[in-house]
Amino acid sequence: MISVSERDYITKGVDRSVRADGRARLDFRDLNLETGMITQASGSCRVTLEGGTDVLVGVKVEVGSIEPDAEAAADADDIDDDGGARTAGGGGPGTDDTTGSSGGGTHARNRGRISCTVACSPSATRVFDPRDVESMCNEYSQLLNRVLNSAHGGVDLAALCIVPGSTCWVLNVDALVLDYGGGLLDAIFAATRGALHNTRIPRATVEQTDGRVEFEIEDEETEIVAGWEDVPLTVSMSKIGYRHIVDPTPLEELCSSARLTVAVNRRGNLCALQKGGEGGIEPSLLAEMVQTAKQLGQTLLSRHDTLLAAEARRIAKGVDPTGFR
């Protein structure tokens, strides 16, 4: 809830680039990041923003089957070098036919997958209508899933394949929103990238004997998630009046008619684009916002990498995370 005069105060402040907390339009709040506090998960990361937003992401790695049906939909927008390798002959999971997928690269039957869910703890959702919460969680889950499983998702999905055509690693990414203070979507992506950096996958060794393929999982030996550095971060921009801002507070979000989320990776690629909110965005403004987001994305990524490097050092030294202590 917001009053007419507050809305006017905020809108005019945004126009003058002097927001209610003194930030300029494109200033982010400070972000705190910590990894590894959920010791039973394969990886975890908690991100908190000055202002209350608190997101915890846990990653659990499990062995799964490569879905035969997933191919049709996934391959539709894939660049597939194999051409006709998708035709009949490649059976369902469990078959020992590995000939159709040699090399393979992005072929859907040679890769693992990432499965994401976003949930809100009830303590975070008091401000919203329960149905709004559910649709928000759905929207964010879908976006995370799309981005991470796409060609520009960063994670090397082919490296997650254990037995081509039949078995793969599935990374279950579960984001839990513990508290809400605005800027939620960007915080979720930041915590996800951090959790993937922290995730360790047990080593799987594959043996082929007498035409049967078997694999063995060694818990003691673990590997990092290949490609985590290329996982994108999002920059969400909220349109207020004729301007746009980043990292809004809850009151600023109430003043915003539309939101544009741009996912950018460290190579500067645009990985995803999504518009939210009921209002419209003028095409010229849109182009400008995307350009701004790409630049800001690089700043965010370098800040993120610095924080993660510090985390890696802490872990190497054997210092326990503070967590909630």
Binding site: S5, D8, V18, A20, G22
Partner: peptide, 20 residues
């Protein structure tokens, strides 16, 4: 009424400073 007075940039900054 719901209309704000005109507020100069400097005044906005001071309000933000006090808030913080």
């Amino acid at each position: 009424h719901n209309d704000n007075e005109p507020i100069a940039d400097q005044e906005r900054e001071i309000i933000a400073r006090v808030s913080n």
